[in-house]
Write a protein that binds this DNA or RNA. Structure first.
Lengths: 215, 215, 215, 215
DNA sequence: AATGAATGAGGATTCATTCAT
DNA sequence: TATGAATGAATCCTCATTCAT
């Protein structure tokens, strides 16, 4: 009982996913600009008209795609940071950036969407907002833990996040697995910059909060 | 003799410039994606078909535009760096980035083309190549002057240039005059990163070569 | 007994009315061409698919609407004519046309549907048939009362009705309340025409039949 | 010389005519609503895109069609009225309406466009404006000739023209050759109405102006 | 060299209707 | 009976490019 209508629901969800996957693949293959409703529909084996059952217009498809991936990324980052034994500016930056790398390996489409896709205004806005939020979260976390000086300008962390974003763009554009040299350098770059605004604890590291008490 | 055909040549050159100017204006107004042959032709007061007299296709117009702008930017950077009293990683980075800012003020079109325009594959490639060349030139200059350790990986400077590029993107996207706070921070960021690879001379600065001896 | 299913029936009837009302409103607002199933359904707060429970297709909705309105109009005309103290070509024409005006004031939707709606073939046919019937009824009534010469060609009255129809179209198209000058002139026009075929009684008027004898 | 470029021009004109003819035929066959760019292009044996070489949009095609026919009608009416031996309200109305009939025979498409086509707002407006102009011209002519009382309300003639319009609609809708009975009656109707506003000369007729002097 | 005219290919979106449930 | 979901067919229009002159 209550499950009676599940099949329909499930079918819809599957189709939405198929559409998103199709869009994703096509973007990787031909770029965001070339993305068209007809092509998406063909690839997803869905009538063009059906796209409009699930999405208001083309933009919304792209946006949904980015949102889907974003959620996955946020979760991965949160997990990586949460798992740190000791925290410092360096360890957080490293964990965060490594988490992104892992995701990019997992979802190559994302690499393209995340950068090329920003042509699209709504995607662009969404990504910027997301970066801002990521920056805000990181700053809050770092301030709470006493890693950065209180009152640190949020714009500084935003700049760091955006710059990290570009590092990935560079690392992945030539090589879908990500150029390790660039990534390592990028981590140095971002870490070095943020340490300028760190407390000494932020530089030398402290144990993970909520971990030190068993004593 | 031989001058008989000059007028035609001159007229062509004028038209090419008019076309480039038109494209430039339109990009600033409506973005790269909205740029169309008809619109360019109208603005340039040239028949659409005539565009194809001077350019193989639409992409080439964009590319020519970027090349033209690039040349201007390179000259400005070279001049700024050449005018430095003392040279150091910091002074070079500052001079370079300030030169860019000046250009952007002077030519708002660059701002849009340089970033939004990278949607276009050939423009994208050109910009990347240009950044690479700028990085190469800077590295050569710095190595010659003994500011960085010999054998420094070119990729490091490239990364710095690309990151600087993103700083500008951030600084200018919200504000066509460029957000000063972001620019200042960006200069810090890039300088800080490059100083990791600098010699002590690169950090403390030396007089401009070929300037100190005449005494 | 037998009443068990009444609620359903009643609900259906209500829904049919709601659909018709919705269509009516939408036509007045946006015209017949813009009328769509989705819009009707939304306005009527009924699922689109349910429209097809009560109507075979979109045309039928329109047709049902016109039929409903027509019935109301006929009743009004019959009442107006029936209430005349003295009857003559002039008094009948006047009463009839005034009755229409009253209805149009009462139901602005008619105005739009009645003319713009005739785009639709079935509506068009229905209106023509209706005009024909109105003409037939009027002629029968006038002949019975001895207002027109026996054997008067029905086409003549039809022409008069159609022309009256156009007068209204003209009077109402600029002004949803109806341009009084045009209406007055239209009554003259139609009366004048019909009097050509009238008996002298038809011109000078006679008391309402079945009203004069009780004495 | 000077004719060198004629072929291109001529070809264009031919194509425009072909497009108009195609549209015309299709309207007669399927009505104005069904008229689509694809269909027109197919029938005219012209690529769809070419329609937009000659017309800004679909509406403009319809409008051009109506304008073309209108010009023809105006000429015919002017000629017919100009050829009258004696002029009176009756002779003018008759000549005018007969001229219309002739045109309708000549161009059956017109019959459909003229009425069904009025669904289209620009066509509708054009027709109304045209009717108004026709009415204005007739009134001016009649006043000059002393057929109607000076200061006659233009709305009266407009009403007459519109009503005449409806007479044709009626006469032609069942029968593409035009129902003669209805036309004759219609002429009576319009004449009768206008004579109410005529001078006695307008009723009894006068010789054509500029014809009586040879004496 | 210059250009008006022509066009194939494709763009996103809407719509009335049907069907499985 | 009622309906959410699905869809084939069609809509108008734009664009970069080519060709005949």
């Amino acid at each position: 009982m209550g499950l009676r209508r599940a099949p329909v629901q499930r079918r819809s969800r599957e189709r939405v996913q198929r559409i998103l996957d199709a869009a994703s693949e096509l973007i990787v293959e031909d770029g965001v600009i070339a993305l068209g409703t007809r092509t998406i529909a063909e690839r997803a084996e869905v009538p063009v008209a059906s796209l409009y059952q699930y999405f208001a217009d083309k933009d919304e498809i792209l946006l949904a795609l980015v949102e889907r991936d974003t959620a996955e990324m946020d979760a991965a980052v949160a997990e990586a940071v949460g798992a740190l034994e000791t925290i410092s500016v360096r360890s957080i930056v490293t964990a965060t950036m490594r988490a992104f790398v892992t995701i990019y390996h997992h979802r190559p489409a994302f690499v393209v969407i995340w950068w090329r896709g920003r042509t699209n205004p709504s995607v662009y806005d969404f990504c910027r907002a997301h970066n801002k939020r990521v920056a805000g979260d990181l700053l809050a976390f770092a301030e709470d833990a006493g890693l950065v000086r209180p009152g640190t300008d949020p714009q500084i962390v935003e700049l760091a996040v955006e710059v990290g974003d570009r590092v990935f763009q560079l690392a992945f554009e030539r090589d879908l697995r990500g150029d390790q040299r660039i990534i390592v350098e990028g981590i140095e770059l971002v870490t070095g910059y943020l340490e300028r605004h760190a407390t000494s604890a932020g530089i030398t590291a402290i144990p993970r909060p909520g971990t030190d008490d068993p004593a």
